[in-house]
Each structure stands twice: as structure tokens, then as C-alpha cells.
């Protein structure tokens, strides 16, 4: 037998564990997607049914907004917070611990608390805005077609930007201090340091974090399902919630599997493109 490459040997234990766990789910989903309730082969029927549903394209569009909006703000705010938390100042430890709180709070509780605070009548947010006269009328944050998706994105950003901050903060520690010292000798400003030293140095971390954020946002159910269940009138329906509804609420396991397969393929293409781009530029950067 040919000897396996050393690198692969290192990776093997993790790959085997993952393979043992997901092999059957992948096969099972694949088979369900091309059969009907009695197990008979139906070809592409499930795919046609699920793609012809009115809400499917809408869910795709919503998913794009949801993923795009979440990622941009999570990465920007998370990186900014990491740079801030990397400055030396008394009380930094406390601020760092406070900053992880949104991420540590159980997702379902965070979602419900936000729903409560955003509520048109019980909500503390409308109370704080209307009380001092900043606004005349309470805003239906979670019911107005213009505000409901942004509100969902804001909650998701709030929940996960601390995660980005922690990951980037860890990456910042490996930047050699002499780089900054050299830059300061040359009279570089804070912005120049950030742009020419900090960001390029944490680039591999940012690339990995962004990829994972995209995957999570693509697969996210908790926040939206807990607050609006995809409503009102499907304005916040994203594909993973549609799959969840099809499978667990409507008992359409085969259609849910078909949609999962489509979703999986699209996500896989995104990941493959991303890794390609990463492999062509990331290695060089190192």
C-alpha cells in the first residue's frame, strides 16, 4: 500500500469522525429527494414541485438579503471591535468580557428578548423613542414590510459580531510588534497602520471567518423562526426556514429533501469558488 501523505495523516482522524456522522444523512437526504412517500422513484418530481411553489424564489431572494446584510455588518463591526479591544487601556478585560455577552446569551432567549423589546406596544424601544418625543407614533418594527428584515439582520449582527471580534482579536496577537514600531518611526497614522499592517496580517483569519459566517447565515433558523416564523406574509422567509416548515410542519419530507439538495449544491458551489479564490491568493499572502 502506498504511504499516505503526512498532511493527510494529520487530518485523517477529524475526517473519519465527520464521515461517520454525515455519510448516512447525505445518502438519506439524496434518496428521499428522488422518491415519494411510499419510497417509489419519482425522478425530478419533488424538485419541480418545490421549485414551482410561489414562495421558493421569494425565499431565495430573502436569503440573499439576509446573508449579505448580516455578513457585511458582522465583519466590519467585529473587526472594528477587535481593533478597539486590542488597544491597551485599564478596564480592557471587563470590556472584552462584556463584548462576548451577546454571543453567549442562548439564541432563543436573545431572539425572544429582542422580539419583546421591539414589540409595538410592550416594547421598551418604542417607549424610549416616543417617551421623550423623538417620534410621534410607535413603529411596528416587526410588522412593517420596510423594517422587519433590517430588524432581523440587526439582531443577527448583534448576536454574532462579538464572535468575529474574538476570532480577529486572536489573529491580531500574531502580528509582530516590530512592524508597528517600524511604521511609527516612519510617521504612519493610525489609519495607515490599520490599512497597511493590521488588515493584511489578519486577512487569512478574515477569509476563514467570512466563509463560516456565510455558511451559518445560509443555515440559520433560530432568530427568524423564533420571532416572525418567516412572516409577515413571507417577508422574512429564508430557505432554511422553508425547509424546516416543509419537513416538520407539513410532513413533506421528500420535498424538503429536494430543497435541501438544491440548497446544498448552491452552498457547495459558493464554498468551492471561495476556496479557489483563497487557494490562489491566500497561499501567496502567507
Amino acid at each position: 500500500m502506498r504511504r499516505l501523505p503526512t498532511g493527510l495523516l494529520f487530518a485523517l482522524p477529524a475526517l473519519i469522525v465527520l464521515l461517520a456522522l454525515i455519510a448516512y444523512p447525505v445518502v438519506y437526504t439524496g434518496i428521499l429527494s428522488v422518491t415519494d412517500g411510499s419510497g417509489a422513484f419519482t425522478g425530478t418530481e419533488n424538485f419541480r414541485d418545490v421549485l414551482s411553489a410561489r414562495m421558493t424564489p421569494r425565499a431565495f431572494t430573502n436569503t440573499l438579503w439576509w446573508v449579505g446584510g448580516s455578513i457585511i455588518f458582522q465583519v466590519i463591526l467585529g473587526t472594528a471591535a477587535a481593533i478597539l479591544l486590542n488597544q491597551e487601556f485599564p478596564g480592557r478585560g471587563i470590556v472584552r468580557a462584556i463584548a462576548v455577552i451577546p454571543w453567549v446569551v442562548p439564541g432563543i432567549v436573545a431572539a425572544t428578548t429582542w422580539a419583546w423589546m421591539f414589540h409595538t406596544e410592550f416594547g421598551i424601544i418604542n417607549y424610549m423613542l416616543t417617551g421623550p418625543g423623538l417620534m410621534d407614533e410607535p413603529v411596528g418594527w416587526l410588522t412593517n414590510p420596510d423594517t422587519v428584515m433590517p430588524a432581523m439582520i440587526a439582531i443577527n449582527v448583534w448576536k454574532l459580531f462579538p464572535f468575529v471580534a474574538i476570532m480577529v482579536l486572536a489573529g491580531l496577537q500574531s502580528i509582530p510588534k516590530d512592524l508597528y514600531e517600524a511604521a511609527r518611526v516612519d510617521g504612519a497614522s493610525f489609519w495607515e497602520e490599520t490599512r497597511y499592517i493590521t488588515l493584511p496580517q489578519v486577512r487569512p483569519v478574515l477569509i476563514a471567518v467570512t466563509l463560516l459566517l456565510v455558511i451559518w447565515a445560509l443555515n440559520h433558523v433560530t432568530t427568524i423562526y423564533a420571532i416572525t416564523k418567516g412572516g409577515p406574509a413571507n417577508l422574512t422567509l429564508i430557505t432554511p426556514i422553508q425547509i424546516f416548515r416543509l419537513g416538520f410542519e407539513s410532513f413533506q419530507f421528500n420535498q424538503a429533501a429536494a430543497l435541501s439538495v438544491i440548497f446544498f449544491v448552491i452552498a457547495m458551489v459558493i464554498v468551492a469558488l471561495y476556496i479557489r479564490f483563497l487557494a490562489s491568493s491566500g497561499e501567496v499572502a502567507r
Binding site: L8, A11, A14, L15, L18, L19, L21, I22, Y24, P25, V26, V27, Y28, T29, L211, L212, I215, W216, L218, N219, V221, P240, I243, F244, L246, G247, F248, A256, A257, S260, F263, F264, A267, M268, V271, A272, I275
Partner: peptide
């Protein structure tokens, strides 16, 4: 291999629970 590590997260939770 690196992409394979991600596969488990690309499958919707609702699809993988039963299997």
C-alpha cells in the same frame, strides 16, 4: 478535504436530524 470538513454545516439541520 478542506471543503469536506464544511459539508456537515451545509446540510440544513432539518434534513439531517432524522438520519
Amino acid at each position: 478535504a478542506q471543503s469536506f470538513v464544511l459539508v456537515g454545516q451545509l446540510l440544513p439541520t432539518a434534513a439531517i436530524i432524522v438520519p
